[in-house]
């Protein structure tokens, strides 16, 4: 196997995730896209770990999984709060920061 097949897979997933983050309007769907991004990063980490025969890649992939769990927890809590306050989770309506 080549290293690049995993890395390119990761890159493609990353781009799809970015597309999702930018194009989706539903807060929950944006969070899902973020998960895709994190997974692509994990594939990279594990692939490089396997390349160097180093356990660090796997360890940090695990850490990323843990952080992702925390991120989803907080993210969904924020989305929930937003829903409760505005009865909508449409991110394009959340534009109170506009200048």
């Amino acid at each position: 196997m080549l290293l690049n097949q995993f890395l390119l897979l990761g890159a493609v997933l990353f781009c799809i995730g970015v597309y999702g983050v930018l194009a989706r309007r539903n807060g929950v769907l944006v969070l899902m896209s973020v998960e895709i991004i994190l997974n692509s990063v994990n594939i990279n980490l594990v692939a490089f770990g396997a390349l160097n025969d180093d356990v660090g890649g796997a360890v940090f992939a695990l850490f990323v999984i843990a952080v992702a769990a925390a991120e989803v927890g907080i993210g969904l809590a924020i989305v929930l709060l937003m829903y409760r306050n505005r009865r909508s989770i449409d991110l394009s309506e959340a534009d109170m920061l506009k200048g």
């Binding site: 970015v18 983050v21 930018l22 194009a23 944006v30 991110l91 394009s92 959340a94 534009d95 109170m96 920061l97 506009k98 200048g99």
Partner: peptide, 17 residues
Amino acid sequence: LRGMQTGKVQQYAAILF
């Protein structure tokens, strides 16, 4: 420049990426 300051998070993210 005001056009950029839309307050839309995703647009900021697009610029960032």
